[in-house]
């Protein structure tokens, strides 16, 4: 429930953020905006839903047909009458206006944040540019020096720009921990960026059905101390060990899928006849 946690802290600072928002025109990542925006949407959405549903249920209860209630209605509906409207439209217009204001305000705000996110990584922070390619059923990362690997290693606190594509079918690349997602489309590239803010191992996975291995199409994302990263990166190059590395990773994924199939084949119900 990191979400609720994020929500409470963000709500306290929401005003601050807003001021911040006007001043800061780029350099925001999805990670900066998602939980705040999601939290506000959640609270307002819940509030609106609760008000509307309560009003609906209250009226349903209040005007329920019951004994002792005056059964006669003025101008009741008649069988065979031509359909016509009832009640006054004024209330309808007001309700619509109120909800339109809420929705448009929310979306407007979200739009400002969108423009911010779309601006891309600030060049001043010297972002790392990494190419990502989805191949059934693994992810390949290519660094500027040509090093290719199936584990994404990035330094802490430095922007990373990912250029995502696919070598075969339509995939969607996503690292949930950094609120990052991009379609991997054959022949097309999609750019997203993020700024990892905490070291550790995270998970990247596929979010578009891409075949039998879709459920296990994932890879590790390791966020390292900057020094450690530089050291690691210096030891890579477009050389033989790196290639072996990636080939090994692919075969691991494959083994995993095959094992998954073999392990359970005895207990599984095949859906094909």
């Amino acid at each position: 429930m990191s979400l609720m946690h994020g929500l409470t802290t963000q709500m306290v600072t929401v005003n601050n953020q807003h001021v911040h928002l006007v001043l800061q025109t780029n350099g925001r990542t999805m990670n900066d905006v998602f939980s705040m925006l999601f939290g506000v949407f959640l609270i307002l959405g819940t509030a609106v839903g609760a008000v509307v549903i309560s009003y609906m249920v209250y009226n349903a209860y209040k005007y329920r047909d019951r004994e002792g209630r005056d059964g006669t209605m003025t101008d009741p509906l008649q069988l065979g009458e031509l359909p016509q409207g009832g009640g006054d439209g004024k209330k309808l217009a007001i309700s619509l206006a109120i909800s339109a204001i809420i929705v448009i305000a929310l979306i407007g705000w979200a739009y400002v944040l969108l423009v911010d996110v779309e601006a891309g990584a600030p060049a001043s922070e010297n972002p790392i540019e990494i190419k990502v390619e989805g191949i059934q059923f693994s992810w390949q990362y290519e660094y500027p020096n040509g090093h290719t690997t199936s584990t994404l290693r990035v330094p802490e606190d430095r922007p990373v720009t990912l250029t995502v594509t696919s070598g075969d079918v339509f995939h969607t690349f996503g690292i949930p921990a950094f609120d990052l997602k991009a379609d991997a489309i054959p022949g097309q590239t999609t750019q997203r960026w993020f700024r990892p803010n905490e070291t550790g191992t995270y998970r990247a996975q596929c979010f578009e059905l891409c075949g039998s291995g879709h459920s296990v199409m994932e890879s590790d994302v390791i966020v390292m101390e900057p020094n450690e990263y530089e050291q690691w990166y210096a030891n890579t190059g477009a050389d033989a060990p790196a290639m072996n590395n990636s080939a090994a990773a692919v075969s691991t994924t494959k083994t995993r899928i095959e094992n998954g199939g073999a392990e359970a084949s005895s207990q599984r119900v095949a859906i094909t006849f």
Binding site: M30, V33, F34, L37, F38, F41, G45, V48, G49, V52, I53, M56, V103, L106, I107, A110, Y111, L113, L114, V117, T172, G174, P176, D179, L180, K181, F207, E208
Partner: peptide
């Protein structure tokens, strides 16, 4: 009503970036 409200989330592009595919 619940379905409609949760759909507005997806209309906000920034939220859609993360909610897509989930």
């Amino acid at each position: 009503i619940i379905g409609g409200i949760t759909g507005v989330f997806l209309g906000a592009v920034v939220l859609d970036y993360q909610l897509r595919g989930t």
